[in-house]
Write a protein that binds this DNA or RNA. Sequence first.
DNA 1: GACGGCGGCG
DNA 2: CGCCGCCGTC
Lengths: 261, 261
Amino acid sequence: MSIFKVASFNVNSVKTRLPILERWLGEDPVDVLCLQETKVQDPDFPVSAFRDLGYHVAFRGMKSYNGVAVASREEPDEVAFGFGDGEEPDDGPRVARVRFGDLTVLNTYVPQGKALEHPDFLYKLRFFERVLALLERHCREADPVLWTGDLNVAPTDRDVTHPENKRDHVCFHRDVQRAFRDVLSWGLEDVYRKHRPGDGEFSFWDYRVRDSLARNIGWRIDHLLASPPLAERSVDAYAVRELRAQERPSDHTAVVGVFRR
Amino acid sequence: MSIFKVASFNVNSVKTRLPILERWLGEDPVDVLCLQETKVQDPDFPVSAFRDLGYHVAFRGMKSYNGVAVASREEPDEVAFGFGDGEEPDDGPRVARVRFGDLTVLNTYVPQGKALEHPDFLYKLRFFERVLALLERHCREADPVLWTGDLNVAPTDRDVTHPENKRDHVCFHRDVQRAFRDVLSWGLEDVYRKHRPGDGEFSFWDYRVRDSLARNIGWRIDHLLASPPLAERSVDAYAVRELRAQERPSDHTAVVGVFRR
DNA sequence: GACGGCGGCG
DNA sequence: CGCCGCCGTC
């Protein structure tokens, strides 16, 4: 059976994370890799490191913050950044849309939102609405579509360690969970949960919580959301915890979806 | 034959260098270790790391720059920082004087001097004069005395890789070499050269010169200078190159003097 | 509190 | 190139 793998990884600086990326992709290559928080301006993006690993790479970044990239073994047929909806900011360094034949991969780095009362939180809720509008504009539910990335939302109580004390957190508040569900209602299925329904399935472990990985105190905020024809072909999904356990790790790990071709 | 070892090591941040110091002193302990560029304020000095290695430690530092320390297996009978000559600045974070019985160890971090035309260069020349005055005030040539540290001077053509292009360098100019020799004339012998007279004997390899250690493009600016009764007991001296070859190294390595007790 | 980027420095 | 302090993020 021929399969392909699509992964999402918030790298928290792609340059700093190159050793980890090289080790990982050298051992267990994926076909499409969506990165967030690359934190690098386009002229400084480490293109050759990806080329040497056998990947094409499309990227849009800025100094210090944000930045998305999509690395892939095959060259995409179409690449676009930002919402392109006329609204400002267009958010190129947070939104990448890539097409391979009839498969669309949408890679987003959703704003964290800072605090419930902060303007950025309203912007975050608006961000989800714009993702939905983008799907409606560019995709069809009957085609294979994957929305992935660091979505900065833990959708259910099982997606955090202590849900009770997180009700007012910008990544767990019911308003952000509803905004997220509203996008899913377009016709997307959580294919990570399809294969890993249990407790303690996380993709982010805070640097500030000591031994968070060893104690498994984390959040599931990096997602793989597939349209029905793609979800139907999904055969596995997993988080690559080894990446979080290495020297100088990102605070996130990669999540990988495995699909029938 | 019972011996003792005295070392000098510009650590370029003592906190950053703890793993290297622990590995080194664990394997090949020295009796007295003079450090320069500790780059730490006194309240933050990692006293317990030295205690755990079996060392007493006296230190005087500041934020970001300079800072000297003397670690020793035996507790010193006397410790003093700075020139104490009434001149300002007294330079506590550059000058440590420590006495063990009749042995005086003078640990200095001589200012680099920035540029020949910079006021710091005159201050550097004055620094050597003040070292001489300090020796005259506190020591006798007939007693064992060791002047050591990062002296920021390569005394002869053999002490750098390309002497021709360094005549106007603040660590190689004839004025700084003369200022250094004037201190030696008090009655000190270069005990490193006594045992290692050859070419390519260095203690510093610039981070900015690629593969400087492997290509041995360096400077001998860290010194071991002994009064006659101590020089007479000197049996070996060497630079510990392994320290420069480790992960996250200082740009200097340690120089070690071995003496009969 | 532990990362990241940055500018200044040698 | 690798320190430092600084500041911003989460």
